[in-house]
Structure formats: C-alpha cells, structure tokens
Design a protein around this nucleic acid. Structure first.
Lengths: 215, 215
DNA sequence: GTCTATACCGTGATAGAC
DNA sequence: GTCTATCACGGTATAGAC
C-alpha cells in the first residue's frame, strides 16, 4: 500500500513515449510532448530514464522479453506437435506471426504502438542496424533454422532472402499506416490484423516454397 | 552561358536534402545540415523552396514523374507482348519492380536515396497517408487492375492484401538498412538489388497465386 | 526516493537587411 | 542571391518540495 501508484507515472511516461515515437519517430517527438501526454512534469522523464536516447531504449526494451517469449513458446509448441520431421513452413510462419496478432488485439493499445515502433526501427537505415539485432536476432535465427529444416536442400541465401520478404510484409503491417484502406477503398483495413495475418501466412509460405524449390 | 551553374546550387540542395531525409527522416534533419552538405548558405534553401516542408515536398516530387513513367512503360510493354489474354502475374510484378532496380543501379546515387525516402514515407503512419496517394495511387491501381485480370475469379480483398505484402517486401528492400547482411552473416547484401528482386519476383508471384486460388 | 518548478544554453527555422 | 538577426523551442541540470 506504500507506493501503490508511484510506478504509475513512470509507466505513463513509457506509454506516452511509445505512442509518440511510433507515430513520429525519434526526432519528431519532444520530451515536453511526452510529459504533457503523460500528465507529468518535463523533468520527470529525465529523473527516471536519463537522456532522451535512454528513454527511447527503455521503451524499446520494455516489452521485448515478453514478446520473444511468446514467439518462442509458439515455435516450440508447433515443433512439439509436429514430432521428428518438424513443422511445415506454414506452421512455422504461423508461430512467427500469431503472437503479434494476439498482442495487437489485446485491450492494451500499448502493444499496437510498440509494434508500430518496431516497424519504424526495422525500416530505418539509421536505427535498424543499431537496435534490431540486439533484441531479436537470436530468436529470428531459431525460426530460420526451423525453416531450413522444413525446406530441405534449400540454399542459405534463398532462405534469408525469403525471410527478408516476410519481414518486409510484416513490417508494413505493423506500421499500420492506413494506406491499404485508401487503396482498396475500404475493402481492406490496416487495423484488421487478423485479415492481414490470414493472408500473410499462405502468401509468404507459398513464396518460401517456390523460391526454395519445394513447390 | 549566362546562368551556367546557377541551377547547380538549387539541385545540390535537393540532392543533400534527399540523402539526409532518407536516412534520418523529416525531423532528424536540419536545414543547416542540408546547407552544409550542399555547400551553400543556410538561407538559400529558404529562398528557393520556402519552408522546410515545401523543400521536403519538392524532393519527393522531383523524381516521381520519371519513375511513374518508366514503370508505366514497363507495364504497357509487357501487356503489348502478351496480347489479348494479358501478361502473367510474374510479368506484371517484374514490370512493377525492375524499373526500381535500374534506377538504383544507375551511377546516380540520388536514385538510391530517393527510393529509400519513398520507403521512409510509405512506412510512416504520419507521412504515408499524407503523401503516398497523391503521387502513386493512379499507377498502382493500373497494376492492380492488370493483376486482377491475370488472376481470374480472385476476390478483390485478396488481391489488395497480396499487394500489401508485395509493397511491404519492396519497402524494406528500398530502405536498404543492411539488416539482412548481419542476419545472414554476409551471405546476402542489402545493396545487392538484383538479388533482392530476383528473389522477390518469384516469391510474391507464388504468394499471389496461392492466395488468389491460381495454384 | 519521487516529483516539480525553473533556469540555462545551444540550436533551429525563418524574416528582413543588404 | 547572400548574410545576419531574431525569437522560439529543445534537452538537460539543479534546487528544493513532499
């Protein structure tokens, strides 16, 4: 009961920063805007997190652990079910993507912002190389290893290029820009993540099979 | 002979802005840095283009016409060859992508920066909706129309979602972040655009066929 | 330890003098 | 076309309230 809602402000700063960084990028956001949105004083962000860059990093780190765990669990679960010959390409991609959909469809809209932030970072020539590897490479390599097993005889470069295409499709989905809404005149909605993944899974799985010679 | 190199400075401003906006985004770049890189006075950008936002727009507009024309030509050329039944999915996607590769592999590195800028804009929740449609929608609709013809019986939503996946894969390629270099430990290179498109074309074509029921 | 008010100093966009 | 001045804003440090 002592500090019941003391952590509230700290978290509200992270929430506000997450949403704003995801929409406007690192330089498009000021600490003052973050503070205003969080309903706290400007200096509080500095007190809790230090420099602006450290706050950015803190936002990036906060949900990474949880996300990696749920994806790893999904991968291991489908591997357990599949047995010795291992899961199919479709099953692996499903394990890669569905945890994201679940996160996006939580009541907690923070996850939506967080994943849009990942999209921003992944697509940025500046931030991408600096931040993606540290948190995600290990798990991605596990997925790629599983894909390699599901695609016997595939050349390594082909598998990586296919992963690149999957990653790109996913990134644009996470960015949630609303562009497809306009292009399709409302027939498709950026915010309809279930539809996005329902299409992305067979689309990319077919791509893997074709390029890696398993058609 | 009167103003032999008067346009030079103006163009150098555009070149510098293009490269910097592509790497750091709109807010990550100052007019001073642009001016320094262009080797001109700070105020000259203002003189030629007005506000920072107008300079951004000018950079975005500069090459759009040329790019749209070469893509439209590529589409019409493959349609002319194919005759009445129309080109295949593979041929249409090839027409959509190859002009980009050609632009990227010109000696003019400006095109590489420009296309990375398109990637930045397309993936941004803020800029995407504001800027993509005005320049690219008309042509994209032409491509989608061609794809629809190549995929008889496909549902509209499916075609749009497939296009979304193609657009995402392309966007990440244009962004040229170097991430795949690290992931693949040098087996694949972001800057190897030919390899990127050589893989993207069969990958996405197979995806279209699977999702749109033409397998 | 948590938080606020405020001050500092550099930097940025832009307008106006030349 | 160029140079300079202006004026607002941004990140950050500090002093102290609770």
């Amino acid at each position: 009961m002592t500090n019941k809602n003391t952590p509230a402000k700290r978290d509200r700063i992270l929430d506000a920063a997450e949403a704003l960084f995801a929409e406007h990028g690192y330089d498009g956001v000021t600490l003052r805007r973050i503070a205003t949105r969080a309903g706290v004083d400007v200096a509080l962000a500095n007190y809790h997190f230090g420099k602006k860059l450290d706050l950015f990093q803190a936002v990036f780190d906060r949900r990474a652990q949880t996300l990696n765990e749920s994806r790893r669990d999904a991968l291991h679960a489908c591997q357990a079910i599949a047995g010795d010959e291992g899961p199919s390409v479709e099953q692996i991609i499903e394990a890669f993507l569905r945890p994201l959909e679940l996160a996006q469809e939580t009541g907690d809209e923070g996850w939506r912002h967080y994943l849009a932030l990942i999209a921003y970072i992944n697509n940025s020539p500046y931030w991408g190389p600096r931040m993606m590897s540290q948190l995600f490479d290990e798990l991605v390599q596990e997925f790629i290893q599983a894909l390699r097993k599901a695609l016997p005889g595939a050349r390594d470069e082909d598998v990586y290029w296919c992963y690149h295409n999957l990653s790109g499709a996913l990134t644009l989905t996470l960015a949630n820009t609303g562009r497809i809404d306009k292009l399709s005149r409302g027939k498709c909605l950026s915010a309809d993540f279930q539809a996005a993944y329902d299409h992305m899974i067979p689309f990319t799985a077919a791509g893997f099979r074709r390029v890696c010679g398993q058609e």
